[in-house]
Nucleic acid binder design. Structure first.
Length: 484
RNA sequence: GCCGGCGUAGCUCAGUGGCUUAGAGCACCUGACUGUGGAUCAGGGGGUCAUGGGUUCGAUUCCCAUCGCCGGUGCCA
């Protein structure tokens, strides 16, 4: 006996089985269609990047902790260390810096896995797929507008139910620092606390901004030691409601009337809002919400976020913003860029929880069953006739009992089964069976002879008409499914 | 990362420091009922009791470590 190896999978990683992959690929295809409609082009980059490129100059130990390092057998030189990418934005910045010949504006989409060695949780894994949409080389707020519109159109196309796309501006938050008399370098700390507002509430945010507190588990939470006067000013900012973009902007202008340069930054936000009104993105699904800060330090202008109103527990399914400084790391000069990233896995988990996910386990629409091995030539011919007519068909590859073959079709959720035995063969016909209708009937029927004899879900058609008949049955099934 | 809880069949869970071969329900497989998924009936397979050490005459059960899962908390560039 040889020793078997345990079929293990590392922490936070998983296999995606056919049932998951079918739903996932359908979703990705829908998103891709939206992005290509916007004229974005595809890009692929390696999973592995140099660690210095991933980390950047400003990154500390904490940042590097969640990067998976990769062993490079070619080199033991520590400056050549490799790691798995943790997002798609940093690789994009590297591509931009190393391909000056690319036409600008360069607008690309990329769907690919990324890796973060974070603690796994529900809907949260260490390998997950991001679907990014970025626009590089344009300073104009029209580029930001387009990203926000793309987020809305994507969520609409995915039929996720009601959603809210929110935006704010890092530049406006910087105005807040000036307004409250807080040093610019403390901005990231302050914003990180403000970002927790929906989670921990105003009371704790206030404490964390000032003296700190001890939470329920006894952990001390360090305060930022702001003065109460500063916190009062911050609270006046947070009181601005996000329900109506025009009103939000008017209140913002009033609050920051005394701040130099405020008017120019608020103008940018207002232009974005007005473009979006003009395009039909009203307040019901697109809000100027000043409380979103995003944890990411590299954002420099507008920031974006989206959540599903029916599944708020899954948090933000889309996030992004303008990052005019990121390419500079690789190029030494600034290139404006803006974009958003969708969490494919999180969105799939949310849709599944909402019961909006299709759980097909097969790509075939027809199962050609094998009743009589001597008719195998016919079965093969029928299967390929369907395939050549563009109908996905699967041939059962052995002649096991018909009951077992139909159970297989049922288990895989193949909507139509095709039967051809000696009776049909003699009559020049085939039997088509609508599996879902049969399943619905099975739930009601009590008596076996009734179950076997009625068979309203199936009918015989002439052998030469079978391709048309299958296409017709599939269209009837599809229409019935759409109508609930 | 830190704190707490949990790991027994594919799933949900019983159970016991020594009666022999560790159980149930569901699921799965085989057969009966015409060549039809369901129901019914008859049968069947499947567990290193998470892994590795330790205590013991004896450990699935007690102890330790590791791994994994769940909850809370931190972090999320």
């Amino acid at each position: 006996m040889t020793d078997v190896v345990q079929p293990r999978i590392a922490r936070g990683l998983r296999d995606l089985l056919p049932e998951q992959m079918i739903a996932r690929q359908k979703m990705i295809e829908t998103i891709r269609r939206v992005y290509e409609l916007y004229g974005f082009v595809p890009l692929q980059t390696p999973a592995v990047e140099y660690l210095d490129g991933l980390l950047g100059s400003a990154a500390g130990d904490e940042a590097s902790k969640s990067i998976f390092a990769v062993v490079n057998p070619d080199s033991n030189n520590t400056s050549e260390r490799l790691g798995l990418r943790f997002d798609l934005t940093v690789p994009l910045a590297r591509v931009i810096a190393s391909h000056p010949e690319l036409p600008t504006p360069f607008r690309r989409y990329q769907v690919a896995p990324v890796w973060r060695a974070d603690k796994p949780g529900p809907g949260r894994f260490r390998e997950f797929t991001q679907f990014d949409l970025d626009s590089v080389g344009v300073e104009s707020e029209v580029a930001d507008t387009e990203i926000l519109a793309g987020m809305c159109d994507t969520l609409s196309a995915l039929d996720v139910g009601p959603y809210k796309v929110k935006f704010s501006s890092r530049a406006v938050l910087d105005l807040l620092l000036e307004f409250a008399g807080i040093e610019g370098r403390r901005g990231p700390d302050v914003f990180r606390v403000l970002d927790k507002l929906p989670k921990i509430g105003a009371e704790k945010v206030r404490k964390e901004l000032t003296t700190g507190y001890v939470d329920e588990s006894g952990d001390p939470i360090k305060g930022l030691e702001l003065s109460t006067g500063q916190v009062d000013l911050i609270e006046r900012f947070l009181e601005i409601r996000p329900d109506d973009r025009r009103q939000t902007i008017a209140q913002l202008r009033e609050l920051f009337a005394a701040v130099d340069a405020a008017a120019a930054q608020i103008d940018v936000v207002e232009r974005i809002s007005n473009h979006l009104y003009a395009l039909g993105y009203a307040d019901d699904r697109l809000a100027l919400d000043l409380s979103i800060a995003r944890g990411l330090a590299y954002y420099t202008g507008p920031v974006f976020e989206a959540e599903l109103l029916d599944a708020p527990q899954f948090g933000s399914v889309f996030g992004g913003g303008r990052y005019d400084g990121l390419v500079e790391r690789f190029l030494g000069r600034k290139i404006p860029a803006t974009g958003a990233s969708m969490g494919v896995d999180r969105l799939l988990a949310a849709l599944d929880a909402l019961g909006r996910l299709d759980h097909r386990k097969s790509t075939a629409n027809v199962l050609v069953t094998v009743l009589d091995r001597s008719l195998m030539d016919d079965y093969v011919a029928i299967t390929f006739a369907l395939r050549r007519a563009g109908i996905a068909a699967e041939l059962y590859l052995s002649d096991e009992r018909i009951g077992k073959q139909l159970r297989y079709a049922d288990a895989c959720d193949i909507p139509v089964s095709l039967l051809l035995g000696s009776d049909e063969h003699a009559a020049g016909k085939v039997t088509l069976k609508d599996m879902r209708m049969g399943k619905a009937r099975a739930e009601k029927v009590e008596d076996r002879s009734e179950w076997l004899e009625e068979r309203v879900e199936q009918r015989q058609v002439a052998r030469e008409d079978l391709v048309d008949a299958v296409a017709h049955m599939l269209s009837v099934i599809e229409r019935r499914t759409e109508n609930g």
